[in-house]
Design a binder for these strands. Sequence first.
RNA 1: GCGCCAGUAGCUCAGCAGGAUAGAGCAACGGCCUUCUAAGCCGUAGGUCGCAGGUUCGAGCCCUGCCUGGCGCGCCA
Length: 549
Amino acid sequence: MIRTRLKTILNDCFQAGVPRHGWPEEAASAFTVEQPKREGQGDLATNLALVVAGRSRQNPRAVAAQLVELLDGCPLLDRVEIAGPGFVNFFIRPQVWQETLSEIAAQDAGFGKSQAGAGKRVLVEFVSANPTGPLSVGHGRQAVLGDAISRLLAATGHQVTREYYYNDAGRQMRVLAQSVRARYLELLGEPGQFPEDGYQGQYIIDIARELLAEQGDRLRGSDDLAPFKVKAERAIFADINATLTRLGIHFDNYYNEHSLYDEGHIDAVVAELRAKGLVYEQDGAVWFKTTALGLDQDRVIIKSTGEPTYRLPDIAYHREKFKRGFDWLVNIFGSDHIATVPDVLAGVRALGYDDSKVTVVLHQFVTLLRDGKQVKMSTRKATFVTVDELLAEVGADVARFFFLMRKADSQLEFDLTLATQQSQENPVYYVQYGHARLCSILRQADEKGLDGPSQARLALLTEPEELGLLKAMSAYPELVLEAARELAPHRVVFYLQELAGQFHSYYNRHRVLGEDASLSQARLALVDGLRIVLRNGLNLIGVSAPESM
RNA sequence: GCGCCAGUAGCUCAGCAGGAUAGAGCAACGGCCUUCUAAGCCGUAGGUCGCAGGUUCGAGCCCUGCCUGGCGCGCCA
């Protein structure tokens, strides 16, 4: 917040410096304002002089001196210093930090939100697991990541639609239906039908058992897979939705791949690509000439059996996303889908859409760790750990927090031993406990009949820890903007851990409710502000902010 | 063979559009509860940022090559 204000002021100074000192115009967007790492280097610092000097062969310290002169009389600043190779360090007046508390209190739940993405319609596609089985921990990571990214985008003013794309036709579902039928027949005393690549999980048997209860043995002789497919799809989708709900995730829309066929979009895409000379027949299959679009090999889009490969509906689906009027398409995929991305983007480009409006967030895999040892998982043997099993152990808050502790690019090691500890080692509770503590102080003040938080004497907040907290709180809106820009919710998680830590430290050193009534009121204002920021941050990642623990 | 991701403290990971003397949590060691919640705090120790070059005022971050691990390279999704 303060940083942004200072940046604005520096932009003005820069514009003044261009004619007056011959600063190079093109450096306008290159300089930054940051928090220095070390004590004594001010509250904020800029590399403006270094950037300007680097592009105009001037002495950086001389440019810094010119900047300092231009800044003369700035109301935010207590003093400025030129340091090192030409950094300009800013010492902000304490009052400026203290006043942020009034803004936080006034904005309350709105603090941290912005309109940076106003008017931008963005579609976030994630999970998109076909209904063949319960969600695995890998899906869990994706679900939480997609949801948190959606929250970040919404908090920055984007108009967000969360969408789940699925396919209930095709080979996978056929095998699923066959698996259910085999289990059904086994229950009727006819074993031996289980398909080679069938789904082996217990849930298939459960579905078969339900089917048996509902239908008796009347499906025994039929060759029709439809009843098995329909039953399995319904049961599994209900299960998936229940899991997502437990994780606190809802979708605005479920997009069925099949509708792309029904509405003729698949044929239309093929026709369009064919008209552009990007399609040809070979070996009985239809190929998409991706080599003409800069890729290293052509790809089959319709198999010789007449069935499209996943690629074709994927392209048609993206075409529909654009046609539905979205300005930005964000896809969250597991890294095993990496190979499909270039093909889809090529298809989008070939159809005349701007593929720079598609952002793909690829996340790496999840491994589970228990007692320092990796938990072995296999999809085929259905020995993978499901999100439901995970939730039964650790709960939604912990699951969400842990899934967001790493950036998407990093593999995520989920330490179950740490996650199940209801104690100090667990970072989730560390942050939540901070919030509960803050609420507790406010409660105590209320119960003791003390005067509540007051903005009247904020000037009393002069302890280094207090100013440190105010600075951190003031940085929250920028943090949200950056996390949204980078689609990186882990930034919020790290911020919260840091802020909670600063507060715990402050709490142990200074007393909020003390003898001095004015000081207590000012500190209560600080406490209330912290409560708001921690709560808003936790909301942003979908983790609850308990008022007591 | 090719593509993408990763390689930073014993372990798991941050490092914010190239910035100043590289950070956190866990584990280890030593302290702090008659006072607003000890699910907390304070302190100690811990590093050739995979390796080698390059770019520049400045590189963990950018470029090139190599090494290691993960994921892919299907008429599976």
